[in-house]
Amino acid sequence: MNGRIKLIFSIIATITIILIIALVGILMDEDVLKADFKIKNIEPCLEYPFGTDWMGRDMLARTVKGLSISIVIGLVASIVSAVMAVIIGTLAGTMPKWVDSILGWLIDLVMGIPHLVLLILISFAVGRGIKGVMIGIAVTHWTSLARLVRSEVLQIRNEFYIKLSKKLGKSNIYILKNHILPHLLPQFIIGLVLLFPHAILHEAAVTFLGFGLPPEVPAIGIILSESMKYLSAGKWHLALFPGLSLVAIVLLFEHIGSNIKKVLDPYNAQN
């Protein structure tokens, strides 16, 4: 087995793990999440690996559900964000100079405000809940990828083969479709995957602070913020396992991102 097969295999395996978590969470029977005071405050054991909380809810089930919500929000938000980035970046790179200036100003503006502050403002303004968080994340995360795409477009636009294509009578749309977009595809994919962990962490953070998902939804942010009250009472497992799971998911995405980068990188390709 050589390096490249290992990489692809590892990417597929990681994606599968994430998909399974997402699916289990989505298809989960609501009953599992119900409170059952007979089994409240159980420490981690074989039957309840993550323990139960003060209302007797199975923490493992809640964590999986929470992760799956995070994954779905992350997926939607980062796709929207990446598509926005490519459109805005391409526009900035191909349109007249004043369009580029306006878009550049917009990118700077969004980048200049701390993510979390902007995210809280937006999700608050559009009415919190899942919709609020998704919109909030989508409109705050496109900037750095857009900037990258813009500079790529500016660079490739000056390539001789693009100017030559024009002299061969090809239209701007043809050039965009056949020369520029195929060139951007790898950037797009890597950017998309690496947006994921950001989106998920920000979703959890906003929710933790109470501006995100409503408290009845078992999101990781909610679980963590609730568990804070019980930490001093010695209920360490309420925060530890969901927290670690969140970190694990984030690392999995990072792992996919950097492996895809390795596969697509021509300089790395022969090692």
């Binding site: 050589n2 490249r4 097969i5 692809i8 390709a269 022969q270």
Partner: peptide
């Protein structure tokens, strides 16, 4: 000689 990947995964 060089160790290289051909199309796909064959080295």
């Amino acid at each position: 000689s060089f160790k290289m990947y051909e199309k796909g995964f064959r080295q």
